[in-house]
Design a protein around this nucleic acid. Structure first.
Length: 275
DNA sequence: CGGCGCACCTGAGTGC
DNA sequence: TGCACTCAGGTGCGCC
């Protein structure tokens, strides 16, 4: 479900809601793909103040004092919300972190592709070791045409769209924003990553930054599942140019938007604009 | 290492 | 109504 913009918005909202509060307990509700161990969470976090919540790639890190905290990923359908402890559990609630004033942070996830787990945040930048393999953030300096061009040299077979979604190459870009960025850049998603020249990579990097920033500004894309911390929908789905628009006219040339499968996922493009 | 296919889950939508 | 089938903002593993 969520890509960089949606995760960024959730992380910011968590920061606003949680910074300065104290963890009072943890409850197991139902099994996730990666199990949440409430005893471990209590041992690690109970009585500790929450310092901040932030995003790295599509992960959310909630940091407490003492280099410990929670690591979460929303998978496709994960969502956080704050609820009074007395509120009945929802069908898909998976874990709860009790807070100091009778409320709790709940994690719900219908498909269970996501998780929230207690974590030691001792790696560089206060990030868990297990995130060390991730590529650069697309909104930071490490992501640029030159770096992407260099990275793509050996990827003679990988389509540029699949390459853009590789989290070791650059993080945070998923199925929606890969199609959108390539449309903005005028690059055909089927082209091998290694076949793009420097100018084209500059365009792709710029387009990716632009579409991610605009989406953050508009609250992310709510297409089917995504909701913010307070259950609110984003608005960027209204600004999507090609994603989910098979058969509709291209907003630039008016020709029909087409769809195809790449790596088992749907890609959307305008073949005329993305020569 | 690069590249592919599939598994992991549940729910919503569609067509018969 | 019911059933069968397809599809979904992600990741990770096994295999060649």
């Amino acid at each position: 479900m969520p890509e960089l913009p949606e995760v960024e918005i959730v992380a910011k909202a968590l920061h606003t809601a949680l910074a300065g509060r104290t963890v009072a307990g943890a409850a197991f509700i139902s099994r996730m793909r990666r199990p949440f161990d409430p005893a471990e969470a209590k041992r690690l976090l109970c009585g500790r103040r929450i310092l901040n919540a932030r995003r790295r790639a599509k992960y959310i890190i909630i940091e407490c004092e003492g280099d410990v905290g929670l690591l979460a990923h929303l998978g496709m359908t994960g969502a956080f919300r704050l609820a009074p402890k007395s509120e009945p559990r929802g069908r898909h609630d998976r874990a709860a972190i009790r807070l100091d004033q009778g409320d709790e942070l709940r994690y719900a996830d219908a498909r269970r592709f996501g998780f929230v787990v207690p974590a030691v945040l001792a790696g560089p930048g206060g990030v868990p070791e297990e995130l060390a393999h991730l590529g650069p953030e697309p909104l930071e300096r490490g992501f640029c045409g030159a770096a992407m061009s260099a990275r793509a040299q050996k990827r003679a077979k990988t389509p540029v769209k699949v390459f853009l979604m590789d989290q070791e190459v650059v993080v945070g870009i998923g199925n929606i924003y890969a199609s959108e960025a390539l449309f903005l850049a005028g690059v055909d998603p089927r082209r091998p990553a290694a076949s793009l020249d420097r100018d084209e990579w500059d365009n792709v990097a710029k387009a990716a930054k632009k579409v991610l920033r605009q989406s953050i500004r508009r609250g992310g894309s709510s297409i089917r599942n995504y909701r913010g911390l307070g259950g609110e929908e984003g608005k960027f789905q209204l600004s999507l140019k090609v994603y989910g628009k098979a058969g509709e006219p291209c907003p630039v040339c008016g020709g029909p938007v087409e769809t195809l499968r790449q790596g088992g996922r749907s890609t959307f493009l305008c073949p005329r604009c993305q020569g």
